[in-house]
Design a protein around this nucleic acid. Structure first.
Lengths: 419, 419
DNA sequence: TCCAATTAGTTTTCAATCTGAACTATATGG
DNA sequence: CCATATAGTTCAGATTGAAAACTAATTGGA
């Protein structure tokens, strides 16, 4: 696209500052990119209803002619399938039902502190295969962990083959800050990883869309948005060893300019609070992280699942230290959420991780705290608990790849035409 | 756009859930909308360099033919003017310099607690006229305040007439939460306004783009972004009677789903802090608002400008209470900013209002606090003071209307063709 | 049984828009 | 005064969706 006039422009010595670089110009073809995405998104949203071309035309505002042409491309690429005639008992020619192909899938993968998990998600969002193994990954070398994951991935690939599902790509979620573009785990304190370069693509050789690295809390938030019961705007609170968060605004993940937004764990909730592992002080994590809660509740060292069991038992037995530990965690979580929700103008919260498990005991203290520090901001019904349990992160990790296809089908069509 | 097939669609009783409503479809004409904006934006960004069509073609990636056609429309509408031949001493035909017309302007207006201000800003961002009057607006009825503003607006209109500048619209900033669409000041505690309906359009009868209501801190942040020294991502902190904020992300104002994001004043900085006027507790405003600082510094009641004078004098005289008051304000401001910057992943801060006036004394405490609560997050050079003084809010308020034209010139062209 | 009515989807014509190449316009410098 | 260089315009060609006419497939009633 560097043409003659541009070269001439830079040669011109006495010229003033060059025109600022700006966004790409609109081309006639962009219209088709947008409409392909629009139609594909409409099919995705309509989901089980399996819309016909005519219904899509009505829903999108495009003409039937345009929709037919767009759908033809999408069907040819394999992203959309016709699922037989659709009749509703009325007069007239029945429509051809359309759906996102269940013969195309994405592998969701998760590395966490105490386990590895893999799932196969088809374009329609169905979890067709799911496998989890316990694995003490804290302090393990990334290569070793990746080898363990490879075994699980092989199962998913086999399941896909047996089901005749073509794998388009994968999403890999890790509990830490990632540089998605360069496949680097910048910092995952709970794994003791720092600036580790991964090669997620090697987990799924040959998948046209590759494997996308993402943060665990962000993926869980997106899973909640797409496949759970998250509204268009909410804060997802991930209680793992650390306290993480995902910010969903306008049905979109808010990542911030540098990609590390949503760090709920390091909101300052008490200016005279203890020093935090991040070097700061008074962070939420020092009051509501797993270690802080177990310590305050006098739960002895052990594996995570054991300690959670013990804590729940202690709570059920009304042991004062356990009750106080969870109450305090809820109170400080309320401080952080009151500040965050006000700053970002968000009025819904979804709890995940250990906060979901402790919700019964945590919720009253958290609601009271929210009411004290930000009265009227949040209706109690907008404080919910994740409904996806352990598959939320997987679904979100895979979903990001699926959404990227839905948002840019044109690029996918091009690639599949070349191949 | 409701055609036959849509009606049929809704009649069809047995049909499944209708296709979800989605974004508008792309039309061929959208390409021109986008490119008109692209070219106009390029001219705006290039600013004083007054680019030629050929330079715009190189800068935008469009062909010369397309740029010529687009520029013709923009010139015809009056948004862009040709400013004579541009020669740079090189060979070849000289280009026609282009600039945003200085014969089109927008009136920026500000209602604040202690003053009213009006300015005339041309499309190129030049403040061509500026007038401020002291006015004790706290507790005054909106109608009365609007009458006072009307006098100032008449001056600006007269100045525009004398200068042969056509007024396209206006922007009115107020120190409170606004509902821009319905022209309601939802809450401006420092004016004692609550759900007051204003009629900003009546301030500039006949202006084709009307008058746009906005929040003072948000406008000041945008003023800093467009006409001051704000980077693409920063938090603007507005120290007025209350503590307000504006969040700029990706060179865009972040308003949040409900339009009230950036409420820095009500971040909780101490869970055992005093009750705040908002009903919460421990809010930043209770430590760093003007009242809190004046109280702690033992500055007696009086007019704002007098009290500020006295405080600055006390600081210059090293009076311990004054020093401590400002130090504490800086410390708690640091707590709030550490949390906010981490949550939203932002690494630059611009101080305005009384924080700008006190910067010399505030800055050390603020930097120390940021380093304590979020070590390494923010380089000291990224903590700056607003350079626009009292015109930032005006420029931002007017700038929002100017930006709306730059972002959607097609609509403006349509309107000006009809008239 | 067969045709009118109804709905789905395709084909055709048209207008909008950008690209690319050829062309015209206007300057500099030897 | 003309070669060269640069700015800007004109025009054919390609892509795309709108609009309308058309074909396809179904139901229900005569």
């Amino acid at each position: 696209m560097v043409n003659g006039s541009q070269q001439q422009f830079f040669k011109s010595a006495g010229s003033p500052t060059p025109v600022n670089e700006s966004a790409a110009p609109g081309r006639v073809g962009d219209v088709r990119r947008r409409n392909l995405s629009l139609v594909l998104d409409s099919i995705a949203r309509t989901g089980d209803a399996k819309p016909s071309r005519a219904q899509l035309a009505a829903g999108t505002g495009l003409t039937k002619a345009a929709v037919s042409s767009l759908v033809a491309d999408l069907v040819e690429s394999g992203l959309v399938s016709e699922v037989g005639l659709y009749r509703d008992g009325e007069r007239g020619r029945p429509g051809q039902g359309l759906e996102l192909s269940s013969r195309r899938g994405v592998v969701g993968m998760e590395i966490n502190v105490d386990y590895l998990a893999v799932g196969l998600v088809d374009l329609g969002g169905n979890l067709r295969f799911h496998s989890t193994v316990e694995s003490r990954n804290r302090g393990m070398a990334p290569d070793e962990v990746m080898e363990g994951l490879r075994v699980l991935v092989a199962e998913a690939v086999a399941a896909a083959g047996a089901d005749n599902v073509a794998i388009l790509g994968g999403g890999l979620a890790v509990p830490g800050l990632v540089d998605e573009r360069r496949n680097i785990v910048v910092s995952a304190p709970n794994l003791h990883w720092e600036n580790e370069h991964l090669d997620p693509g090697s987990l799924l050789e040959g998948a046209p869309l590759g494997v996308r690295l993402s943060n665990e809390a962000n993926s869980a938030a997106l899973g909640e948005l797409w496949y759970g019961n998250g509204p268009a705007d909410f804060l997802y609170v991930s209680g793992e060893v650390g306290v993480g968060g995902g910010v969903i605004i306008g049905s979109d993940l808010y990542l911030g300019p540098g990609g590390s937004a949503g760090e709920l764990g390091h909101i300052v909730v008490h200016p005279e609070g203890p020093v935090c592992s991040c070097g700061g002080a008074g962070c939420l994590e020092t009051f509501a992280g797993q270690e802080a809660i177990f310590d305050a509740a006098d739960i002895p060292e052990g594996s995570l699942s054991e300690r959670i069991e013990q804590l729940l038992a202690a709570l059920a037995a009304q042991e004062p230290n356990a009750l106080k530990a969870v109450h305090d965690a809820g109170r400080y979580l309320g401080v952080a959420l009151a500040s965050s929700a006000r700053l970002m103008d968000i009025d819904a919260i979804v709890l995940g991780g250990h906060f979901a498990l402790l919700a019964e005991w945590l919720r009253p203290a958290l609601l009271a705290s929210l009411e004290r520090y930000a009265p009227g901001l949040l209706e109690p019904k907008n404080l919910t608990v994740s409904g996806l349990e352990h598959s939320g992160t997987l679904l979100g990790a895979a979903g990001q790849v699926i959404r990227s296809v839905i948002e840019s089908p044109f690029e996918f069509l091009l690639a599949s035409k070349l191949a």
